[in-house]
Amino acid sequence: MPTAKSTTNSTTQPTTVPVIVFEDVSFSYHSQVQILHNLSFSVNQGDAMVFLGENGSGKSTLFLNLLHLVSGHSGSIVVENLEVSRKTEKKVRQRVGIIFQNSNDQLFLPTVKEEIAFGPYNLGFSGEDLENRIIHAAKSIGVDDILDKKIFHLSQGEKKRVAIAAVYAMDPEIYLFDEPFANLDPKTKTDLAQILLELHQQGKTILLISHDLDRLPEFFTRAIVLHAGAKTFDGTLRDLYSHSEILTQANLQVPSVVELYNLVKNKLMERNPHLIEKIGGEIPANPKSIPIPITINEFSKILDRTLDKILEQILEKTN
């Protein structure tokens, strides 16, 4: 079974079993305006994928359709071999957990503990089993010290954690995160990235909506871009960063590291185009084939190599 293995070794080798398949999916709310336009894509087990797009482009609506929390789509949505419909919605929701954009709208019970208990309770857990699930989820997500607190008294960051713990306690295979980084301070964002990483290492499939490419953990390699409800890009993030027109259309900015890289590269080109040729490696002469660094780590390596080359030249000259 791929799942059993994936807990230890899935970061590098995601399996290729499709767990979500959208085929020609369109959707409109009660009005005439169509929100989603003929979307087709598939997601493999263990994938970490980000959905991008301008405000109102239909990202949240896509998630709602996936869980059949709104009804009336055309085309077909299949989740783990289940065709999403009124009949299958209960089973689908057991396999797919969603963390909504606004935690205030997601939490509805008086205390943290009751909130976390809600999901597993609905799955049929009770007594000691239920208790164990709550404790395990609370410890894993780091809310075990606020279990007895009233939801109303929590900070935004704590609410976000509770919302995640409440889903984690149901142990779904697929996680949907709708703009999880919004409204959080930098430290809490880092903690959240850590939680995402752990889920990824457990082999969970993660779909995440974001506007902030800077905050995206490194293991998110694939992106789908929506523009006005239609898919305009489906591929790796690295590829996406060289398609500035798609990014602009979706009101997005390349991450700071890409910006920085471009800045350094241009300045070097201005001063000494030949130098670039000599450096080789990650900054070749032909800009078309540049593999853009998308992590600080990659950028740092390129910078090292560049500086070394420059120093080398200076030394050669002085000798």
Partner: peptide, 19 residues
């Protein structure tokens, strides 16, 4: 409406746990 969706998303069937 959002809260109702959140309840359904976690398998709400009319019951709440008594802890």
């Amino acid at each position: 409406v959002n809260v109702h969706r959140a309840m359904l998303a976690r398998g709400y069937n009319g019951e709440f746990p008594l802890l």
